[in-house]
Design a protein around this nucleic acid. Structure first.
Length: 441
RNA sequence: GCCCGGGUGGUGUAGCCAGGCCUAACAUGCGGGCCUGUCGAGCCCGCGCCUCGGGUUCAAAUCCCGGCCCGGGCGCCA
């Protein structure tokens, strides 16, 4: 709290986590919420909770102001308070210290009853929690997810900055479908119809034609699919990269090293938050296993899945495959037909493509490819996929005047958070998730 | 989109299959009281609930039909 900008009151203001032996005997100021009040009659304990943890405010009736004692005893849970007092070493107190207040100010009294229990004495259903997300997020265990997500984003930017990537922002309001395959949300754009972007794919490729060479985008993507599962959202955050003068293997290296880096940094920087969650983050070894599509189909077949070469891998097939694959792994060399038009076919066997999915168990985390950079081949593939090349005007133009060979991938951040922390539902990884039925809050 | 499951105090559960003993139970909470070392505090008193509409029946939280809302699986998709 030495920072002048963060200051406020306020060399004296501390987070609960910043209190240590050096503060014993000194006066400090805490701001926070009333987590619990334990009233023993002649002695009252108020547990103050702030962003970083808890502190026990102890009010012995005989040692503190009478009016203040009455106020603290009656304060309702989740009210916002400001406490000024002396930090006293006390063996009997949690963490070995307590605050004996000289001032106890209720900045905003909370209503009762609460829509859910922040103390988690009684569980709440996910739906109730999401309806009252602001209060759900007060739970340390829930807030920890987002502190870790923050560190993940931080380390992603760090990683790519070190590797010479340029972070960009491409439009989320677009005129037409980019990749086909998925349903789009139509919107009104003045007198025209437009759509929310399903992926930055076409734009990041266009930036390869612009000579950016290595780009990173972190942004929302929108899919209008009516799915109803623990791993799909209609608004998600995608981590996208595109790299010139490399192939699919080149960008797979970035991907696996990134995933490892993220896990390392979360371990280094999020010890306390992992503790709150009760999670351990295993740092995955690189390189990740490459399982070919052919091998994947073999495994599924052997375990009784009805699947033909060329089919997409169904959920049950992926679950069979996951039985044999631990942690993160790639499935590579997919049939060209099952991947989007921009995926580069292998020169010696055009039936398969230079494509890969990054998996964690049976959950797909990322997918990518070397891209087609040859204009005429691209037009041919667009037509073969049943799409109209005329609707790809600005995109195709970029391939006519010097498009370098390139490759890239997109990764679902929410799914990565879900996988890394072993969350039971992707909605747990998102502050305000958007799904088939939820538009509020 | 197809399929399965569910909706009981503020919250989370029990009761439903085998209708009546349910003026609905338990925990937590909330209001009041007692208590100077709590940390799931304890003890005493009190408060608060059957998703909506229709039907069957002497009788419906319970059985049937429909609506609304929700969860999940699959498909599609990342």
């Amino acid at each position: 709290m030495a920072c002048k900008i963060c200051g406020g009151e306020v060399e004296m203001r501390k987070f609960t986590s910043d209190i240590d032996e050096k503060d014993f005997g000194k006066e400090i100021v805490l701001y926070g919420w009333v987590h619990e009040v334990r009233d023993l009659g002649g002695l009252v304990f108020v547990i103050l909770r702030d962003r970083e943890g808890f502190a026990q405010i102890t009010l012995p009736k005989k040692a503190v102001d009478r009016e203040m004692f009455r106020r603290a005893r009656k304060v309702r849970r989740e009210s916002v308070i400001r406490v000024k007092g002396v930090v006293k070493a006390e063996e009997k107190a949690p963490n070995g210290f307590e605050i004996i207040p000289s001032e106890f100010e209720i900045l905003n009294e909370a209503d009762a009853p609460l829509p859910l229990e922040v103390t988690e004495k009684v569980p709440a259903e996910l739906d109730t929690r999401l309806d009252n997300r602001f209060m759900d997020l007060r739970k340390p265990r829930i807030q920890a997810i987002f502190r870790i997500r923050h560190v993940m984003l931080q380390s992603i930017r760090e990683f790519f900055d070190r590797h010479g990537f340029i972070e960009v922002n491409t439009p989320k309001i677009v005129s037409t479908a980019t990749e086909g395959g998925t349903e789009l949300f139509p919107i009104t754009y003045f007198e025209r119809e437009a759509f929310l972007n399903q992926s930055p794919q076409l734009y990041k490729q266009t930036l390869m034609a612009a000579g950016f060479e290595r780009v990173l985008e972190i942004g929302p993507i929108f899919r209008a699919e009516e799915h109803n599962t623990i791993r799909h959202l209609n608004e998600a955050v995608s981590i996208d990269i595109e790299v010139s003068f490399t192939d699919h293997e080149g960008v797979m290296s970035y991907l696996e090293e990134l995933v490892r880096y993220i896990h390392e940094k979360v371990n280094e920087r999020c010890g306390r938050y992992l503790e709150w969650i009760g999670a351990k983050v295993e740092i995955p070894d690189t390189p990740f296993t490459r399982l070919s599509y052919d091998e994947a189909v073999e495994i599924a077949k052997r375990k009784g899945e009805e699947i033909n070469w060329g089919d997409d891998l169904s959920t049950s097939a992926l679950k069979f495959i996951a039985e044999e694959m631990d942690g993160y792994y790639f499935i590579v060399d997919w049939p060209t037909e099952s991947k989007p038009f921009y995926a580069m076919p292998h020169e010696n066997d055009p039936e398969i493509s230079k494509t890969f999915d990054l998996m964690n168990g049976w959950l797909e985390i990322a997918s990518g490819a070397q891209r087609i950079h040859i204009h005429d081949l691209l037009v041919k593939r667009i037509s073969e996929q049943g799409l109209n090349p005329d609707s790809f005007g600005f995109y195709l133009e970029a391939f006519r005047y010097g498009m370098p060979p390139h490759a890239g991938w997109g990764m679902g951040l929410d799914r990565l958070v879900m996988a890394a922390l072993n969350l039971p539902n992707i909605r747990e990884a998102v502050l305000f998730p958007r799904d088939r039925q939820r538009l509020v809050p």
